[in-house]
Simulated scan of single mutants.
Amino acid sequence: MYEQLIPCDHCGGRPTVGRSQRLVSKLPNPQFDYTEWGRMSGPPRIGDRLPRPPEVPKTEPLVCIYCADCGMQTPWEATGRDEKVAMDRCGAVWNRRLNRPAAEKTELQRLVEREMGAADIPAVLELLSRTDSDWEEMGPMFAMIARRLVDATIVTFDSWAIDPVLNDAARYRKLMQLVKWVEIDGERYAQFPKIYTPAEHNEMLFEDRIATAVDSMPDRDRW
């Protein structure tokens, strides 16, 4: 689901999942000090997952989608029995927030002044989607940026075989997403999954056999 979340409306940052907890009971308990653990300490805080003492009122886990750069956040959702369903609801709320600020001339000027390449195409398209006025002034700047991107893309394709690099990067990302932490003798280790390679691949080159094995692995849970 992370791949389906749009960037932050306010700053364009990457959204992520926030977790917290809140009191289940809405009625105050006169025998309980709420100043540290309870509702009187304020609204739920992102990252507040510290277990409560057994004698205090019970809490329920919460999730939200928020931007770590500017703090934009969806309302909290109680996880209930299925945390992924609650995160799906938060993701749907996040993606409905499409009121992004209009692009400014200074943002385009910063792009013009820097050395641009094919990797900057998404940023230019994002600025173009937020431009709704001043086309007489912004249009020539977009044309200049587009020409520079086209020239940079042509040079890249002529000098760099990018397809194998992107494929290897995708395989590396898949392995990083499937790695787990394990505790052995009090020490933490990163454990990668075992990868099955069938006998009919024995005649393949070592690199090709490893690449085929990694490609056949299932994708991670997108949450």
Rank of each mutant, 00 (worst) to 15 (best):
M1Y: 05
Y2A: 15
Q4P: 01
D9C: 12
D9F: 11
D9I: 04
H10L: 04
H10A: 07
H10D: 07
H10S: 07
C11M: 08
G12L: 02
G13H: 04
G13K: 01
R14L: 10
P15L: 05
P15I: 02
P15Y: 02
V17P: 01
G18C: 03
S20G: 05
Q21C: 07
V24R: 03
S25N: 14
K26Q: 09
L27T: 05
P30A: 09
P30I: 04
F32V: 15
F32T: 11
Y34W: 13
Y34H: 08
Y34D: 08
Y34E: 07
T35M: 15
E36V: 15
E36P: 00
G38A: 07
R39I: 08
G42D: 06
G42F: 06
P44I: 00
I46T: 02
G47V: 05
L62K: 01
C64A: 11
I65D: 00
Y66S: 07
A68C: 09
A68R: 06
A68I: 06
D69F: 03
M72T: 07
Q73K: 11
Q73I: 13
T74M: 01
W76M: 02
E77V: 02
E77N: 01
A78T: 04
G80M: 08
D82A: 10
K84S: 07
K84L: 10
V85Y: 12
V85R: 12
V85T: 11
A86S: 03
M87T: 05
M87V: 12
D88L: 14
C90I: 03
C90S: 02
C90Q: 02
G91Q: 00
G91H: 01
A92V: 08
N95K: 06
N95T: 06
N99D: 14
R100C: 10
P101F: 12
A102V: 14
A102M: 14
E104N: 14
T106H: 14
L108F: 10
L108Q: 03
R110Q: 13
L111G: 00
E115Y: 11
G117C: 05
A119T: 11
D120C: 12
P122I: 11
L127I: 01
R130L: 02
R130D: 05
T131P: 06
S133I: 09
D134L: 12
D134V: 04
E136R: 15
M138H: 14
M138W: 11
G139C: 10
M141W: 04
M141A: 05
F142C: 03
F142S: 02
A143K: 15
A143L: 15
M144L: 13
I145A: 04
A146G: 08
R147P: 02
R147Y: 15
R148T: 08
R148E: 11
L149Y: 05
D151R: 13
I154L: 09
F157D: 06
F157M: 13
D158C: 07
I162F: 13
V165P: 00
D168A: 15
A169K: 07
A169Q: 08
K174F: 06
M176G: 13
L178R: 04
L178S: 02
E183F: 06
E183I: 04
D185T: 04
Y189D: 09
A190F: 14
P193D: 07
K194G: 13
P198L: 10
E200F: 15
M204Q: 07
L205S: 08
L205A: 13
E207A: 13
D208Y: 10
R209P: 00
A211T: 09
A211G: 09
V214A: 03
V214W: 01
V214S: 03
D215H: 03
D215F: 11
S216M: 10
R220Q: 09
D221P: 00
